[in-house]
Structure formats: C-alpha cells, structure tokens
Nucleic acid binder design. Sequence first.
DNA 1: AGTACTATTTATAACGG
DNA 2: TCCGTTATAAATAGTAC
Lengths: 200, 200
Amino acid sequence: MGRGKIEIKRIENATNRQVTYSKRRTGIMKKARELTVLCDAQVAIIMFSSTGKYHEFCSPSTDIKGIFDRYQQAIGTSLWIEQQRMGEDLDGLEFDELRGLEQNVDAALKEYHVITTQTETYKKKVKHSYEAYKTLQQELGLREEPAFGFVDNTGGGWDGGAGAGAGAGAAADMFAFRVVPSQPNLHGMAYGGNHDLRLG
Amino acid sequence: MGRGKIEIKRIENATNRQVTYSKRRTGIMKKARELTVLCDAQVAIIMFSSTGKYHEFCSPSTDIKGIFDRYQQAIGTSLWIEQQRMGEDLDGLEFDELRGLEQNVDAALKEYHVITTQTETYKKKVKHSYEAYKTLQQELGLREEPAFGFVDNTGGGWDGGAGAGAGAGAAADMFAFRVVPSQPNLHGMAYGGNHDLRLG
DNA sequence: AGTACTATTTATAACGG
DNA sequence: TCCGTTATAAATAGTAC
C-alpha cells in the first residue's frame, strides 16, 4: 500500500519508524472504530511506541479497564474449569485456601474502595477539566470524531477516554493503579497512618 | 475495499455481521503484528464479538496483562501527580490512609502469591500441553506465523499467548482472575479454610 | 510532529461453494 | 460457518511542506 512494497521487518531509521508508527496507528484505530460500529463488537487497544508513548482505543460505553475485566473473566472461567479438572488429582486443600484468601482480598478491596471515594471527588474534577479542554480543542478544528476513547499521552495529562462512565469505573482504575507494585512515586514518602486490616 | 462501498453503521443481518467481524478482525490483527515488527512497538488488543467470543493480540515478549500493567502505570503516574497537586488543598490524611492500605494489600498479594505457587505447577502443565498442540497444528499446514499471541477461545481452551514468560506473569494473571468480583464458578462451592490475614 | 499528494499495494464486500 | 475468487475501495510508502 504505497509507492513501493516493504518488507515486514524493523525499520532501522528512527524517524521513518516514528512516521510509519503514526500513520499505521491511525489506520488501526480507524479500523477498530469501524469494527465496533459495523459488527457491534467491543474492542480495546493499547499501544506503546518504541519511544514509550502510549495510545489507546476503546469501544464506546465502556473503558479499557472494563474490557480488560471482561477478558480476565473470560480467561479466568476457562482457567478455573481446567483447575477443577486437575483438582481431581489433588486433595483440594490449596483451592480451599485460595477461596479463603479471595474472600479476604475482596473485603480489603471493599474497604479500600470506601476510603478512595473521598479522593475520587477531586479526581473527577481533574478529569472534567481535561475533558472540557479536549472538547474545546476538538471544536477548534480537529476532524476526529468524538465519542471514542482515543488517548494521547503527549498532552501530559489525564485519560481522555470519552466513553468512560465516571463513577465506579474511575474508582476501579484508581485501585488498579494502586495495586501495581513498586509505584515509583510512593518511594521516599512518609507513612503515618495505622490501618490494621483484620478481615474474615 | 470491496465490490461496493459500505456505510459505517451496524450490519443488521447477523450472518453478514459475523462474516465481516471475522474478516476485519483478521485484518486488524495482521496490521497490529506488522506494527509491532516495523515500528518496534508494544500492542495489546482485546476483542469481543457481538456473540461474546473473544480474541486477542499481543506483541511478543510480553502478554496482555503486562501491557495492561504498563498502561495502568503510565496512567497512574500522571494520576498520582495530579493528586499530589490537589493534595496541597487537603490535610493529606486520606493519602496517608491510602498508603497504609496499599501496604496491607501488597502484603496480602505476596502471601496470596505464595499459596498460588503450588497451583501454578499444574496450570503450567495445561499451558504447555496447549502450546505443544498449537505448535503441532501450525506444523500441519497453517501459514500464520508463530511467535505471536493470537488467541481464539473457540478452541475452548487455554490462553495461547506464546510470548508470555510463565512464572511471575502467570501468577499475576491468577491473582487478577481471582480478584474479579462475582466469579461465577465460585458460587455454590463450600469454603472450609480459615486464613486470617493480619498484616502490617 | 503533523499534513498533503499520489502511485501502489492491501484489505475486503459480494458472491459461490 | 469457514474458504476461495475478484472487482473495488482504502491504506499507505515515499516525498515534500
């Protein structure tokens, strides 16, 4: 699709690589959007360029987290079935332990969510500001259709996923962010609280 | 791109919709693969058809979970910075509480991981069987290049993500699966264990 | 880092097993 | 539902701004 045919192998020239990345990223995002509309499908795409910038696409009426959750559940269900089969050869103890721990973790997540709520209020303010800014930016001449979750971190700001329904989705994001181990911004910060989680 | 131009709107005929989904899914997956090779990018794609079937693509040397984690971290870092800024208007208490809870949840995850290890052994066996099967299938005539994480749940089986480096990644998947709320297969199963998580 | 311009290559809609 | 064929629409490599 171009003046000449190209081999599918790493483009060594960094500039050309970046240009091709931009063009093809746009193409894939468009295809994804068409697929969701034509075929009533849910699609989530995350991309990181070789320079570390990320871009995303997400079907309307949901967000990346929502689709990833659904994916985990789809994978998890078959995993669990496999494990049940294998469990026939085991004494079943570790599954009981897993279930017990799951209850504890779930309870922890609930408490975590409650405490996060207050912070959510402020998070939403940032998000709404950013979205207002994005809307304005679009009205000033961008042809790209709204109502889709394109995101460009070049703006240095917030997740601009337009389809994301604020509320619970935002809270879930917050948690997922928290659980990521070794969150760099936490280092060197004093902790004075004293929450003792005793669950179950 | 076809005998006639089509409007980008939902295809009402279910059969045609499914056919178009299959064709265009293949096209997007191919484009994604080319992008990863040409531009040295990381790409993760999750799709759900209108009938609920899922398909995925993932760059080599990682898995969907890994890319999603990176995405969360990329999003999360800017979130955290925003929150630090907003924190100047607050007394900082909820951040301390969050940090404390994070420590507890992290500790819970560690213990969870330990107990999961035993089960991992069996999970890997399933995975390796599946990969062996896939390899054989490819050698028997499929032209599709290996070394990419295409997955088709139609096979009713395991995540075929070839690039996934077993070990820790698999454990992380296991946890994520567990934490998904309302995991249907857990209902109606007795729990006899008694793990009391007391952390911090 | 976009945008615009084409000659080409590629994807795919419609149709037939 | 999936595979092959073919005319056509779309994407894009190369290029210059």
